[in-house]
Amino acid sequence: MGIDHETLVGFAKSWGLFYLIAMAIGVLIYTFWPRNRKRFDRAKNSILDKDDKPWR
């Protein structure tokens, strides 16, 4: 096999760490982006609206 074990483990571990950090930053930016505030508030309250029928 072309890829040996050490390389694979090294890649998996370092890339995994990088990936984790990048993803966390991405999620945080999305979550706290000011323009998203309204959407989230809408979503938060939307489930309490009357929902006896589908909207057409």
Binding site: M1, I3, D4, H5, L8, V9, A12, K13, W15, G16, Y19
Partner: peptide
């Protein structure tokens, strides 16, 4: 990712 990172190396 988690699965790949943990399991894949076990096969090589």
């Amino acid at each position: 990712i988690g699965g790949l990172v943990e399991i894949a190396p076990l096969f090589t």
